[in-house]
Computed example of a mutant assay.
Amino acid sequence: MRILHTSDWHIGRTFHGNSTMDALAEVLGALTAQVRENAVDVVIVAGDVFDSATPAGAAYTLLSDALVGIHEAGARVIVTSGNHDSAARLGFQSRLLREGIHVLTDPLAIGTPVTLGDDDGPVHFYGVPYLEPAIVRQHWGGVELRTQAQTLAHAMELVRTGMRENGGRSVAIAHCFAAGVDATIGLEREVRQGGLDVVPLSVFDGPDYVALGHIHGRQRVSDRVRYSGAPLHYSFGEQDKPRGSWLVDLDASGLSAVEWLDLPVPRRLVTLTGELDEILSAENVAAHADDWVCAVYTDPLAQTEPMRRLRERYPHCAMVQHQPADSLERSERSYTDRLRGAVTDTERIGAFLEHVRSGHGPTEREDDLIREVLEDRVRAEALV
């Protein structure tokens, strides 16, 4: 049996205020073509199908078009819910779809597989929707479920019980933060609470393959436990991570091969670092005018209207940051510390300017002006 493992479509997510719907439709169209070209039997979507618990109507349309297109390309589809999805809304969608498209959102059905067959016999697919401990613990009295790790460990015990009852080959699908993975800073932490919700690799013992979602970059946790990542780049922190999916082959004895299939990137992401004039140079513009651009300019002082100037050259500039070249070398004393150490008014003003200018204090000319103003104030007070 040939399986395509994808996840984290995040239908409806914007990229710095820009819609990603057209780009995602393009990429999912390419994924559908891969299903046909590689004679894929089953496509797994491991959670975070939508980006919101209340997706707009256009998001439902894109999902329906994608799932029906994949099915018409010759594959059956198995979808589970992630932490961004509303399990109820995603589950409702399943009733409107045709046979051969399975949407698994019910925690009480974790141990009951979707069973599909090939020439070597049955393959049992166990879908584990995203499980919020505070919500699902009511279903399993007497089991301590305070963290994601505990909850997913219990869910996988239900999967292994189902495996013993059904026999044959098996695939598990889950949405979580597994131990040992490399996350995108600021993007994939919401499923965790400190370190308690990291799921140990041993939790996934048993199935021939475990298709995970939540991490947006391709990850190989072990030969049989993997993340496919998201099909689009949704942040500049992901810009160097490939986009695609895992092509998984099962033979009569279990997992036989796993291959990575790249997906197209509709618009590249690039971070340009240097002084603003350098970023705006003809050479840079020629190379990156059509890219999503994050500009990190290193001029000592903040420049006037940098975003306007950047967008005149880079129509798709999405982010601008001021990070002076020596910022990492400067003292990390807080503003309060600098004020506490200041003795004179001149030093206090200098500390303020250093704070608001990302570490750059007054220039020599500004020092002269500050002294003149302070001296004028002293003379004025002496006349009162």
Rank of each mutant, 00 (worst) to 15 (best):
356 V>G: 09
115 T>Q: 12
76 R>M: 08
122 P>F: 12
252 A>R: 14
137 R>Y: 02
231 P>T: 04
319 M>C: 04
287 A>S: 07
65 D>R: 15
72 E>P: 00
277 D>W: 00
284 N>E: 07
383 L>W: 08
218 R>C: 08
320 V>H: 02
167 G>D: 10
147 T>W: 05
358 S>F: 01
37 E>D: 15
6 T>Y: 06
53 A>E: 13
49 V>E: 11
132 E>Q: 12
15 F>K: 09
8 D>S: 08
332 E>C: 11
225 V>K: 12
316 H>Y: 13
180 G>Q: 10
119 D>K: 06
267 R>I: 09
101 I>P: 00
291 D>Y: 10
301 L>F: 14
118 D>Q: 08
300 P>A: 08
196 L>G: 02
23 A>Y: 06
189 R>P: 00
56 A>R: 12
60 Y>A: 03
276 L>Q: 07
272 L>T: 02
223 D>Y: 01
237 G>Y: 02
261 L>N: 01
231 P>A: 02
161 T>L: 05
19 S>P: 14
44 I>K: 06
178 A>V: 13
265 V>K: 12
160 R>C: 05
92 F>S: 08
181 V>W: 12
266 P>V: 04
380 A>I: 06
16 H>V: 05
344 T>N: 02
328 L>T: 11
176 C>N: 13
204 F>W: 08
119 D>T: 11
104 L>N: 03
183 A>H: 03
178 A>M: 07
330 R>Y: 11
173 I>Q: 06
284 N>K: 10
297 Y>K: 08
167 G>E: 07
67 L>Y: 06
6 T>I: 13
219 Q>M: 14
16 H>M: 05
280 L>R: 05
48 D>M: 10
67 L>T: 06
3 I>L: 12
249 D>P: 00
296 V>I: 14
317 C>Q: 03
33 A>F: 02
129 P>C: 10
235 S>W: 09
304 T>I: 07
